[in-house]
Simulated assay, not measured.
Amino acid sequence: MKINHLTSAEENLMKLFWKLDSFYLKDVMEQHPEPKPHQNTVSTYLKILVEKGYLSTEKEGRIFKYTVIMPFQNYKKFLLTELFHNFFHDSGKEILEFLMSENLISQDDLRGYFDLKIEIKPTRVKAPKLEIANEILNPKKEKKEKKKEKEKKKKK
Rank of each mutant, 00 (worst) to 15 (best):
K147F: 10
K47R: 13
D108N: 13
S101Y: 05
Q107F: 09
E11F: 06
K26V: 11
F17D: 04
P139L: 10
L130V: 00
K150T: 05
F98N: 02
K76W: 11
S8H: 08
E51R: 15
L16D: 02
H5K: 15
I63P: 01
Q73K: 15
K121W: 00
E119S: 07
D108I: 10
K52G: 04
L104M: 14
I136E: 10
L20Y: 04
I48N: 12
E10A: 08
S106D: 05
H38S: 07
V68T: 14
H38C: 04
V68E: 04
L99G: 12
Q107P: 00
L99D: 01
T81W: 02
L49V: 04
P33I: 03
K154W: 08
E94W: 06
K155G: 00
L96K: 12
H32L: 07
Y113K: 09
H38Y: 06
K59S: 10
G53H: 13
Y75R: 10
F72L: 11
T44M: 11
K141T: 10
G92Q: 07
T7K: 08
S56F: 02
V125M: 01
D90C: 13
D27T: 04
L49K: 10
K19G: 03
I132S: 04
E131Y: 06
L104N: 08
T7I: 01
Y45W: 10
S101P: 03
L99E: 03
K117V: 05
P33V: 03
E131P: 00
Y75G: 09
G61F: 05
H5N: 15
K15Y: 03
E30K: 09
N74S: 15
A133F: 03
Q107R: 10
N74K: 15
Y66S: 05
W18K: 02
E135H: 11
